[in-house]
């Protein structure tokens, strides 16, 4: 979909692949640390398996990513997606893993701000499509949508550096997670609880936030920068017609 493979020097691709592997390892470690917290969240409204399933899946995925040798980012993403798909179980397998398998192709030209936006958009689209979930259903979509929208807008409209855009996306995801607390679950096992699901934080939205936080931490580390201190609000009000006219292409 994007990028020119030929332009990438091999060393750059290797370095990018290495960075993505480091990110996967960081996510695996974080999910393991948060295993009990995710399980507690899931036991309130679901079947108490999200922490264990995700920890096992990401540990396997980190191992599979490490075994790749000197991969490009697309290969890492695809491998991690396939591993999550077979190891996580439940709906999280196809949602977290399947979506990654299908969005990995956006990284075929390497990691650029354009390919990162395309990857994020395709990932969100796949999660929505597979889970048939929309914003406000109290699912991972509630964390992912504001994160992807904020990332895209920060890159394409505000022209922020990718690390700042990612930091803003993480803040947006955090607000999305908070939004899952006071609303009623409409998808997944939590929806069986009806009104009793109100007042509970969604586990899938929470693990989505953890993943994004680790991507940000590793990106900052690789760039040798502090994590930018920003929030999801806009630095500018876009007044040019181009930004306002933009139709929501890509969404169905």
């Amino acid at each position: 979909m994007s990028g020119d493979k030929a332009e990438d020097e091999e060393s750059a691709v290797g370095e990018e692949g290495e960075a993505v592997v480091a990110a996967v390892e960081a996510v695996a470690e974080r999910i393991e640390t948060e295993r009990d917290r995710l399980t507690d969240l899931d036991s309130a409204i679901g079947d108490a398996d999200h922490g264990g399933n995700m920890a096992r899946g990401w540990a396997e995925a980190a191992g599979a990513a490490r075994d790749l040798g000197d991969p490009d980012p697309e290969t890492v993403a695809k491998t991690v997606g396939k591993t999550l798909m077979s190891e996580v179980g439940g709906a999280s397998g196809p949602l977290f893993g399947g979506s990654l398998v299908f969005s990995a192709a956006e990284l075929d030209g390497g990691l650029t701000k354009e390919s990162a936006v395309a990857f994020a958009e395709t990932y969100l689209e796949k999660v929505e499509e597979r889970g048939d979930a929309r914003i406000g259903d109290a699912t991972m979509v509630d964390a992912l949508t504001p994160a992807v929208h904020t990332f895209k807008k920060s890159i394409e409209v505000d022209d922020l550096p990718p690390l700042d855009a990612l930091a803003k996306a993480v803040d947006a995801a955090e607000r999305g997670v908070a939004f899952t607390v006071p609303i009623r679950a409409r998808k997944g096992r939590a929806s069986y609880l009806g009104w009793r699901s109100v007042g509970h934080q969604d586990p899938g939205a929470t693990s989505t936030l953890f993943i994004l936080e680790e991507l940000l931490a590793v990106a900052a580390d690789r760039l040798d920068r502090e994590v930018p201190d920003v929030d999801a609000t806009s630095p500018t009000i876009p007044d040019d017609a181009e930004a306002e006219d933009e139709s929501p292409e890509g969404s169905k």
Binding site: G93, L95, G131
Partner: peptide, 14 residues
């Protein structure tokens, strides 16, 4: 049920 539907759709797509 549930994730069997999603996993079947993923398998078909692949």
């Amino acid at each position: 049920l549930g994730s069997a539907v999603m996993n079947a759709e993923v398998a078909i797509e692949l």
